[in-house]
Design a protein around this nucleic acid. Sequence first.
DNA 1: TTGTTTTACGTTAACGTACACGTTATGCTA
DNA 2: TAGCATAACGTGTACGTTAACGTAAAACAA
Lengths: 374, 374
Amino acid sequence: MSFYLHLHIHPKSFYYICGLNKMIKKTELTGVKEIARRANVSIGTVDRVIHNRKGVSDATRQKINLIIEEINYQPNKMASLLASKKILNFAVLIPDISVETDYWTYPLNGIEQAGEEVKQFGITIQYFFYDLHSRDSFNKAAEELLNCNPQAILLAPSFIEESTAMVKRINELNIPLVFINSDLPKQPSLTYIGPELYQSGRLAAQLTSLSIAHEDEIMIINISTDLENDHHLVRKEQGFRTYFNDSKLTNPITTLNIYETHIASVENAVLEALQQNPNVKAFFVTNSRVNIVANILKKHNKTHLLVGYDFLKSNINYLIDGQINFLICQRPKEQGYLAIMALYKYLFNINEPEKAIYMPIDIITKENYQFYNS
Amino acid sequence: MSFYLHLHIHPKSFYYICGLNKMIKKTELTGVKEIARRANVSIGTVDRVIHNRKGVSDATRQKINLIIEEINYQPNKMASLLASKKILNFAVLIPDISVETDYWTYPLNGIEQAGEEVKQFGITIQYFFYDLHSRDSFNKAAEELLNCNPQAILLAPSFIEESTAMVKRINELNIPLVFINSDLPKQPSLTYIGPELYQSGRLAAQLTSLSIAHEDEIMIINISTDLENDHHLVRKEQGFRTYFNDSKLTNPITTLNIYETHIASVENAVLEALQQNPNVKAFFVTNSRVNIVANILKKHNKTHLLVGYDFLKSNINYLIDGQINFLICQRPKEQGYLAIMALYKYLFNINEPEKAIYMPIDIITKENYQFYNS
DNA sequence: TTGTTTTACGTTAACGTACACGTTATGCTA
DNA sequence: TAGCATAACGTGTACGTTAACGTAAAACAA
């Protein structure tokens, strides 16, 4: 009875006894409790040290840090997630899927798949899309995105200037950011995930060179309404030409720039170019619009070697058809998947990604396209 | 004071008050507690229903099951793991990495990487290796594996009979199982992750046909001490030949079977075959031993087209060298990674894999090998 | 001196599940 | 009908972490 009376006067002693009970029951070897026990402090203090929060004297902090190293403390992720029950909101800003090209469906699929997998960890993904032809739409979407206070951002920085401005603001807010598909090398980011363009041009060149004779002529076709700003195409062309130089191959190579994307315009340009260069035996189209060229060649019963880019439905059809020989592709779906996973792993301290993750450069042909996206 | 006195007499009432407090504080919408609240039972009973344990009346069981469906109850995996603090042990049974070929380092790397990522969820991986030349070693390793009572198994079933016997036992024990690299289609398993051999043979044929002239002869080389049992090689050859048939290509194709793997034996065989078939312009080696052929061709200053398999160091060297033109490869690292992840996702109810996951069939050349394994 | 702020730390209630154990209620046997 | 087994359910607590809250004591101000 005196025990219980004691309880009344100093309720705390009750807990002390509880504490004793627990200590008797258990001999912990890991975790914050063990750290606290060894340091003769409470787990609260340990927690403050672990999370670099203030309110701990330097001496205590040091002692605790020492113990943490000593026992090689690895926080229990499950307990941590359970306790913090924080909801992380990832924001994704990528081009919308236009009628013109369904390229971005693939990264989007990858993003969504990753989203499914990390959902259970309390991660939600919010999507923002912009029109690849409108800088305004990009700015508008970027603004909306930042208003949502995301904890992580995935960005496809198509417009360099506008993206740079946005990235500046993101970095001020200290939000982890990954680039996808194209890089802004000078802007700090967690990582870049996407293609290495120059090398893919070289690969296209190698494939071309293996399939044609020494004297055959080659034509590089760039199709873009905004060619000056499309450094993608330039890099690929550079890679292509350098390969031929490096390999001491003397095939004549001409470049055809087409600034309009309607079939009619491309058709005119290509036919005219072919008249002027009748010995051209192979075409290298530096982006996914290779299906337009395939269409034209088919219409005019031409059987040139045709190499282009990207696993799009319209391209695959011509691949099956035999009109396109090789498509070069850099795992668009995986890009999206890896980007989300990189953010997740970073925020959950699983690991930090490389500064740049270059996707493998895949060659798609009639005989392997079936297995490309499973 | 009277309150504390009350506590003495009926200690429970203290908890009751606590309970009340909690109920006031919270309005839960998910989880066992909510189910218990709706069903007017305790969480203990709900727990029993969820885990199909006895001790619940049919009426109560039905009511609870109904509520579980109603609110679409998804157990919180983290809480569950934390509470049960069970350690899941995955067992891996794959060939060891011989001096002859380092192929299995790649799947192993993938497995280890996945292992790192799931470690935090209390998953450990135990490795068992067998000698590809010894069925006994397989049986021994399989026995050891089963003695460890793993909760999931990853198996590379190289020896069909022995593997089948093992799989039978695994299925009796009801342990989730995935096959990697080769399949046992008739044996039930969670999934198969690996190559589609026939199609990769077709792809090799396509690459070959694009790079040679119509009249050039082709030689298929199978190198294996146990060719009869190596259905891998047979399937690839079938694919290769079928492509030429389907494409109405008339290039003569001969097959050279070599039953010894020493360089000397292969050299003799190849040189002799070349004398008999002087018009051979291209070789297709149906497995990773293509580097042996490359070695021989280089030694004798031959510049035939050479297509083979697998991203091995010795093969890559000849790829850089130019002696090998194409390597076909089916993401060995990813196979290992995906296999572990499939088991993890299955056991954690994230999702169930497809019955068979065929890896993309990649083409590796001098110009893209750098980015293949990042 | 007294009052106020700050520092440094302890305590405790969640988070959602699992399970050992205690308590009734019910049925069955001798 | 006493005695006992067992079915059916409730209770308490552990799991490891987080973070809000509380509170001494120290530092400082008046």
